[in-house]
Design a protein around this nucleic acid. Sequence first.
DNA 1: TCTTGACTTGGACTCGGTCAATCGTAGGAT
DNA 2: ATCCTACGATTGACCGAGTCCAAGTCAAGA
Lengths: 136, 136
Amino acid sequence: MSDLLERLRRRGWRMTSQRRVVAEVLDGDHVHLTADEVHARAARRLPEISRATVYNTLGDLVSIGEVTEVSTDGRAKRYDPNAHRPHQHLVCSNCGTIRDVHPTGDPLADLPAEERFGFTVSEAVVTYRGLCAACA
Amino acid sequence: MSDLLERLRRRGWRMTSQRRVVAEVLDGDHVHLTADEVHARAARRLPEISRATVYNTLGDLVSIGEVTEVSTDGRAKRYDPNAHRPHQHLVCSNCGTIRDVHPTGDPLADLPAEERFGFTVSEAVVTYRGLCAACA
DNA sequence: TCTTGACTTGGACTCGGTCAATCGTAGGAT
DNA sequence: ATCCTACGATTGACCGAGTCCAAGTCAAGA
Ligand SMILES: [Mn+2]
Ligand SMILES: [Mn+2]
Ligand SMILES: [Zn+2]
Ligand SMILES: [Zn+2]
């Protein structure tokens, strides 16, 4: 049973068969699927589900903060159900595998005031790149 | 006179009017133009230049390491002529302005071995987000 | 000047994503 | 249990960003 699905129920999110399969697909650790991958997996359980519904549902989940968008490669955005534990990403430059990582320290602390150009800096997104064990 | 143009000449890069205007447009600090912006500016000097040529030229410049690709939003890639001084980016979440920043410390050092999943990690790309002085 | 491989072009095409009109239904009201 | 309706789902057209290709042009070395 999906943790995400559970949270959505508690929020009183209007539940439809489409929304349910999307939430079920977005379950697990290190899950970073593209919208089309979500659509393909959802369609195995519910063949009639449309691409637009998947996009709508993912967009809704992002806007209520239950899923985060990750764009590591300039290609399709990926959707991450691990929205409640802040983390960064480690990406294999060869095969594209993505792992959740938790660096120590606060990257914001590494940006000195004179390098802030008067900005109110609120967030640092870090993408580590390298080769995974299989690709190295 | 463009610094980039100078470097390209020294490399013996085959020079055409199209390549010259693209290199001229990619001059200055904190320059992060999209391909279409490069095309628009290049076309002010050389109206017949095609979109395909701009894409080709930018791709070539990236592959020889004279320009780097930056994708901060999930939208169009941006092209950065500041390829010889490593740096990160500070982006205004409201207006999209991008500044080059030089954080202290090595972000790779903040990723403990047990968080590397057997990867050979070679690079950390950091995007700082916040509001610029004008938007705050 | 001649030659030729490298560069340029326009247009068709792909991929990822958005939109809007219309249809269907979850879930509250009775 | 049935009704009602606002909200969600569907279809297909559309869009922006980027790639590809065949044909034409030209930079620069001989
Ligand atoms: Mn993640
Ligand atoms: Mn830059
Ligand atoms: Zn790999
Ligand atoms: Zn701003």
